[in-house]
Simulated assay, not measured.
Amino acid sequence: MSKEMATQERVFDVADELATHGLRVTSTLIRERLGGGSFATILKHLRNWEAQRESAVDDIQTMPPQLMSVGETLVAKIWGVAHRLAQQEVGNIKKLQIETESNLTENLRESLNEIQRLEHAEKASQETLSSLQAQLHDAELRVAEVNERARLLQQELTSAREYGDRMQQQLIEATERASHAEGELSAIKARAAGATGDTDPQKTEAKATAPRRVKGKNEDTI
């Protein structure tokens, strides 16, 4: 067959196709796919293809530590905003509670004074007394309602704090898993380098990350 069959473009195309399907990219297999060609020419183009692949792997940069901390910073900011809003809301409720209790206490004092005055008055009206007692009961119910609202808001604040703590713990665990994964990747690269005898970290990384699959009985097993 003519050597022109093994042009760089055709060798690159066949190599990409083999790699995409998880096959070992070898000069023999490329020559079979091309239907012929010089082994020397195919091997030269194959080395250029491998160098190009290694260069592409080198372009993948490890996430900077500053970026890794973005998630933690974001969670902290969200928690800070939620905490301030919750504290502000609780403060408003407490202020409202104090003002309401003060007004109700004053109203209660006035009502009690009026009741005492009516009790000591010969012409006290039983109907007026009953009305004032009803107002007193309503005031007590409103005080109880305000206290219940304050209790519920305190529970919501506690839940928000617990949620923030869980989010922070999940972020810590995710960071630890990422660090562990990086350590495992480094170990795999080191083992690959030892197994192949290749001390070039770029070639080792390309081989460790190249797509693979288990072949049939008549093919080599990776």
Score class of each variant (00 low, 15 high):
G36W: 02
R142I: 07
S130I: 04
K44Q: 07
A190G: 04
Q135F: 05
K77G: 11
R151H: 14
L171G: 01
V143D: 14
Q116I: 11
L129V: 10
I30T: 00
Q169M: 09
E156Y: 15
A51S: 06
H180V: 02
V70Q: 15
N147S: 15
Q168C: 02
A192L: 08
S186R: 07
Q52D: 05
I115T: 10
V25D: 01
N92V: 13
L152H: 14
M5T: 10
R31S: 03
E99H: 03
H83G: 08
A174T: 05
K44W: 08
S55W: 07
M63K: 13
R24F: 02
G194C: 01
K203Q: 07
V81A: 10
S179N: 15
M5Y: 03
H180L: 04
R53S: 08
K207C: 08
P64H: 02
R213Y: 00
R84Y: 10
V57T: 13
G183F: 01
K123C: 01
L136N: 06
L34F: 01
K44H: 10
A208L: 04
L171W: 00
Q66V: 07
I78Y: 15
Q66S: 14
L74R: 10
M1W: 07
S69A: 15
E110R: 12
E32M: 05
S125L: 03
T105P: 00
L132N: 02
A190M: 05
R33Y: 01
A86K: 00
V57Q: 14
E101W: 03
A51F: 01
R142W: 03
A193D: 09
K94C: 09
